[in-house]
Design a binder for these strands. Structure first.
Lengths: 215, 215, 215, 215
DNA sequence: AATGAATGAGTTTTCATTCAT
DNA sequence: GATGAATGAAAACTCATTCAT
């Protein structure tokens, strides 16, 4: 805090136009867009809002995107990508017990519920889904289906090992996720869900899997 | 300009579309509004869209409502009315088996998935959640909670009768609904779900309940 | 001018929103657009200008046209139509002398040069022609070509009657118009052409036709 | 940060497009501007368009010009320069026949129609006439008038020599050019004119001159 | 009651120009 | 000299709402 340095620094009236590499700006704009779109929905969100939230001018946004629609598309694309990579690394021949299933599938699911981006993504898909029908289709195909296939494989291995009972879940791996999806929807409809409730639902979910899968 | 000629001449110049009683029009407009709002969300919906969907002109809508907000409000009110009556007819002291549970709970749920109004309402709650906070609150209070209480009572009766096994579902009746909610979300995200897929999910749901509840 | 009538008439602050039938408004808007576009060119013309010139609000213009481009298209279409109908009604077997040719072809041409709309149309076609390439093509086909065919027929009839000499013009009726087109271009480039110059060029045009056509 | 390393390392990170001497760049930019302005008109032309057409970036254009207007001005200036020199080489006292006239006047005219710059310049004068008033004035004064005077002199010499007939063209040398001007306008309106049509019109032009001038 | 032209207050989009790198 | 991100002032366009008919 050397006073001398500050003394003859004329405070620039304009905050010294930030000039960042495009990739950084695009990221900032998408971050801002996520916040704004999720808050007000796509239609009600103004480009000014996004620009302000991203810390640049309206025109600046248009340096990187050609339209509001394009921002929406880029945002959804970015939101869906990570889900892709998130799948647990395959495991050789460890015993597949319910505990393992919980660790590999259930826990990450409830963890992601804590991440606001998850709710936001889902809300965007639901609220403005029509606008993104194609993207949603791709997402199903590239992310959801392989994920379910993975779970099914896990279950079958567990059953083959005699660690899991053969029941509906073996045929319908979707059901493994249902209680979590249910929670997610509640979270979405209500806006929040207190930690206690969340924890209780997680426990119930696990208990249910035990009843269905333990031999 | 013979007066006689004018007297019984129906003026055919103006098409003079339907002039219907107000109650009919209001109903038509709200039906249209539900469709349009659910489809595009409140903000993106144009009064013209609602008017067109209701089969009258923009100005015609304003004959019955003073603003877009008012239409939204009236729509919420109307959506809430049936909520009070909707609960399944109470049951005396019949044996509560899984079959009964399916008939009382699961079947109606999948039936309602077929009704567009269900999806539309849910989508409205998700897309314009903030605006529809009132709807969301009332819906929880008037529909979800009593419904769950009902189910819990059923389950406990069945358990007391020895027809149902005591498991997680007894403590967490939510789980009885989870697979159906999961299906509903898929329906919402994808826009449609073919009859085959729906039937399969219904069967899996029932099978799961059997595994969890049959003694 | 009965004072009583005026006394308790509160002068309405707002000038009593004009409400005219669409056809009238469309006409007014196109009139205004002709003036504005010709004055500043399509690109530099603002919708506000057109609206102001037409005596309504910007939004009012959009009640009748969906875009600036559409106004341009409608304007050019309207400007080109009359040229179509303008062709002299065919005449049975009158003698076709140079005088007749002048009366039927040359005179109307120079008359139309006096009409500002002619210059404006041409200017629009030239300045913003790329935008209207298709329209220009249609115009050639529907208006220009038949017009030239007409002239050629006239010339050949005159020649057959022995009233006109057989020369280039018989093969190339375009040339009948060339001096007039030349004048038109000068008019366009310079913005105006004084009456004296115009008259002189008209006379020269006729004299040339005489030299080429009189036997 | 070894200085040695930096010394002879060509920095390949930035493509560092051509860094050319200013005069070259200015020429390229004006070439580009002529194309772009003629194509879309001054108002509709974007600096980006000009820059792209000149093969550099928007900012690069501003290194050489301070505004769009300045580019326009410089372009006009450059377009005017050749006007001074363009006049056909003077002719001593050769016999002036129609053939000579064709060689001296008609041929160069149709040749220049092939040169895009001609059409471009004319279109510029027409489209942005108000803005190019200066160009228009100078062009008349420096090109058109002397050119017509030249032609008139030629014609009179030919007539005096008995090689040319005394007719309207002697009084109105403009008419010598009219068919060519007509062709130019068609070229302008249509964007292109195939070689066959052009050749045919040239021949008709010459034939007409013969009919008017040969004794 | 109904229509549809008209308004005006936004909102999106464009682009000449600036400037940090 | 050159680039391209950023700005800001304008322009195009949208749409809830009003109102003459």
């Amino acid at each position: 805090m050397t006073p001398e340095l500050l003394t003859d620094q004329p405070t620039p009236e304009r905050p010294a136009r930030q000039r960042l590499p495009a990739i950084v700006r695009v990221t900032q704009i998408l971050d801002a867009a996520l916040r704004v779109f999720s808050d007000k929905g796509f239609a009600a969100a103004r480009i000014d809002d996004v620009a302000a939230a991203a810390g640049l001018s309206k025109g600046g946004v248009y340096t990187h995107f050609t339209s509001k629609e394009e921002i929406f598309g880029a945002l959804l694309t970015r939101l869906m990508l990570p889900l892709h990579a998130n799948r647990p690394p395959l495991h050789p021949d460890t015993a597949v017990t319910v505990d393992v299933l919980v660790r590999q599938v259930v826990a990450p699911m409830y963890d992601s519920l804590g991440d606001p981006a998850t709710a936001l993504t889902l809300r965007l898909m639901l609220a403005d889904g029509a606008r993104a029908q194609q993207l949603v289709g791709q997402w199903r195909e590239m992310v959801v289906e392989p994920y379910l296939a993975d779970i099914q494989q896990l279950l079958q291995r567990g059953a083959a090992q005699g660690h899991l009972r053969r029941g509906v879940l073996l045929r319908e791996p979707r059901l493994v996720l249902s209680p979590g999806v249910h929670t997610m929807l509640e979270l979405l409809v209500q806006g929040t869900l207190d930690a206690t409730a969340m924890e209780r639902q997680r426990k119930a979910h696990i208990a249910m899997l035990r009843e269905l899968l333990e031999p």
